[in-house]
């Protein structure tokens, strides 16, 4: 792989790591508030909001840490890709139903809430980074190490 390819790969990987570690830590710090943000989407029964809020931050954190450490990159990217697709579907649903809510992507009770539309664009950008990281990972290490 060229130097440029390596720079793109590591840049994408580290941006994804930073985004998902930050998201995981801020959500894990206040699970109840995050459950409230999930409830804003009105797609899950009440108690299930707590269940999802209790698991999701640790999944983001674990995948973010693996990306940071450059270990098990493709499995981590695959999990985050699927998660991101779910987020995009949820955000699209909120936009279609006309909900003016905080996306619940990062810090709970933020004074600067992110609208579903802005979050949707950000998630699409993250998808591009995930595809880039997945594709360029092949040139970084032999497949066996994944």
């Amino acid at each position: 792989m060229t130097l440029f390819g390596k720079a793109i790969y590591h840049g994408s990987r580290l941006v994804l790591a930073a985004v998902f570690i930050y998201a995981g830590v801020t959500k894990a710090n206040d699970i109840a508030a995050f459950a409230g943000q999930i409830a804003n989407y009105k797609v899950l029964p009440y108690a299930w909001n707590y269940l999802v809020a209790s698991i999701l931050p640790y999944l983001e954190l674990l995948c973010g840490m693996l990306l940071l450490l450059n270990m098990r990159v493709r499995p981590a990217v695959l999990v985050l890709f699927v998660l991101n697709i779910v987020f995009i579907l949820a955000l699209s649903s909120a936009i279609i139903r006309g909900f003016d809510i905080d996306c619940g992507c990062f810090r709970s009770n933020s004074n600067n809430p992110t609208s579903p539309l802005a979050a949707l664009w950000r998630d699409l950008g993250l998808l591009v980074l995930m595809v880039t990281t997945w594709m360029l990972r092949h040139g970084q290490q032999p497949e066996e190490s994944e």
Partner: peptide
Amino acid sequence: IILEAFILCVLSVAVG
């Protein structure tokens, strides 16, 4: 890769 992704999910569920 899919198996390892599944293991990541199981680990996160267990921790959460």
